[in-house]
């Protein structure tokens, strides 16, 4: 097996996993704390990519795009929560699925109206566009940059939730809303904050993926389903579970796409193998989730407090 190719694919898998984690973390918190199923979570992923792309194209600076997009997504997240989402925390899952489905339709169309149907590609600064040699293997610098940023964000999120006062309040609200309210925690504020932070995390994911895939309409719709799969596998409400499951799903997907065609090629004709390989990789992910649900219904790492 080609080691260089393998290491590159491994890096791609980890990178996809970390992006998935950024989406899944917010989704999992929103779900675990507010019992809210958010199909529109991918909207913030898309908006992050579009806003960053617009600024980056206009100013020529990807970093400026990044810096502008974050607060923009934060504000959009708060607005969505305040206008629509907060009315649905106590409604059943069916209503939540439908209202966020409606939000997806609105957001995708609004993006089409504002930016056109074409999608945008994002220029990278020269220092991120090159290759880096590590122990004889050259890796794309930007992929390493994604891994580094996402790892830092993941670590920071974990520290905030585990160590800080805000994190304590979030955990308290998650395990027992009434108790939290009795302790004087303003759950409405916490909910808004959690939703907005989730939006920002998804936005970071979208921003970072934009230079690779570009910003396109509906880019969040497939990945949000994958992120949902991740939180089911990891255990709803568990950040650690989301992390492990995200990396796992990222690796299955990437390595499956890379290697299944050649494995299948040994048995089937090349044209069959090339189309069946990626399909099989996707099927593997859903199969994993089904098996987890059958044998460990509350996920691999359910939060301790439930």
């Amino acid at each position: 097996m080609d080691t260089v190719l393998f290491v590159n694919q491994l890096l791609n898998g980890i990178q996809l996993g970390l992006i998935l984690f950024l989406l899944a973390a917010g989704l999992s918190l929103v779900f675990g704390i507010m019992d809210f199923i958010n199909l529109a979570h991918g909207v913030f992923y898309m908006l992050g990519a579009y806003i960053c792309a617009t600024v980056a194209i206009a100013s020529g600076s990807f970093i400026l795009g990044f810096v502008v997009a974050l607060p923009a997504v934060l504000v959009l997240g708060l607005a969505t929560e305040w206008l629509i989402v907060r009315h649905f925390y106590k409604r059943d899952h069916l209503d939540q699925v439908l209202v966020t489905f409606g939000l997806v339709l609105c957001a995708d169309t609004a993006v089409k109206y504002l930016w056109g149907p074409q999608g945008l590609s994002v220029p990278l600064p020269a220092w991120l566009g090159g290759q880096v040699a590590l122990g004889g293997i050259t890796l794309p610098a930007y992929r390493l940059f994604i891994v580094a940023v996402a790892a830092v964000v993941a670590l920071a999120l974990w520290q905030v939730i585990a160590r800080t006062r805000v994190g304590m309040m979030v955990r308290a609200s998650a395990s027992n809303e009434e108790m939290a309210r009795a302790l004087g925690i303003e759950t409405r504020m916490i909910f808004a904050l959690v939703f907005a932070i989730g939006a920002v995390l998804a936005g970071i994911g979208g921003i970072m993926v934009a230079p690779i895939t570009g910003a396109s309409i509906g880019m969040g719709n497939q990945i949000v389903i994958l992120a949902l799969v991740v939180i089911i596998i990891g255990g709803i409400g568990s950040i650690f579970g989301a992390f492990v499951a995200a990396i796992g799903v990222g690796l299955i997907d990437t390595l499956g796409r890379a290697y299944l065609p050649s494995i299948l090629g040994a048995v089937f004709s090349p044209s069959v193998a090339s189309s069946a390989g990626p399909a099989l990789a996707s099927i593997l992910i859903y199969l994993t989730m089904t098996l987890v649900l059958v044998f460990r219904p509350s996920g691999l790492f359910p939060p301790a407090n439930r």
């Binding site: 389903i225 799969v229 044209s271 069959v272 189309s275 069946a276 390989g277 990626p278 399909a279 099989l280 996707s282 099927i283 859903y286 199969l287 989730m289 089904t290 649900l293």
Partner: peptide, 14 residues
């Protein structure tokens, strides 16, 4: 998940 499995199967069956 079950629906996606069939969906991807048919995507893959050239």
């Amino acid at each position: 998940a079950f629906a996606q499995m069939v969906y991807f199967t048919m995507m893959g069956l050239r």
